[in-house]
């Protein structure tokens, strides 16, 4: 059975980084809608793609949050991205592949991926 001992080692290693993170208050928020309709439409792999992608690329100052109903079932999975000082961008009918594009172009590059936004879907 794998034990939790390794966790204390990770804690000691990460302590320094944590203090840095606490100072970073201006952070981009990525909200994934996880109501029944969202999960059925495939929200879990989308959430995972965002968390994994952000971890792999070592992007700081980004929070991935899960929320219940966003109120637009037919557009699920829905993801809302809010960068500090910018307006909220709503991405619809997301997939893990689209999430990777959003990370690359929007989160890292600062350019909204217009073709996946709700405005282009309507």
């Amino acid at each position: 059975m794998k034990s939790l001992e390794e966790l204390a080692v990770i804690r000691d290693k990460m302590q320094a980084l944590v203090n840095l993170r606490n100072e970073a208050t201006d952070c981009t928020k990525i909200v994934v809608g996880m109501a029944t309709c969202g999960i059925a439409a495939g929200a879990r792999p989308v959430l995972k793609a965002f968390s994994d992608g952000i971890q792999e690329k070592g992007i700081k100052d980004v929070m991935v949050i899960q929320e219940g109903c966003i109120g637009l079932c037919q557009y699920e999975p829905i993801v809302e991205v809010t960068a500090p000082g910018k307006e909220k961008v709503t991405y619809v009918k997301m997939t893990a592949e689209k999430a990777a594009e959003v990370i690359e172009q929007h989160i890292i590059g600062g350019n909204v991926v217009t073709k996946y936004t709700i405005n282009s879907a309507m």
Binding site: I10, K13, M14, Q15, V18, R21, S51, Q55, G58
Partner: peptide, 10 residues
């Protein structure tokens, strides 16, 4: 005070 959602912890 190390957050549980840190990549290394995940």
């Amino acid at each position: 005070n190390v957050p549980i959602d840190l990549p290394e912890v995940t």
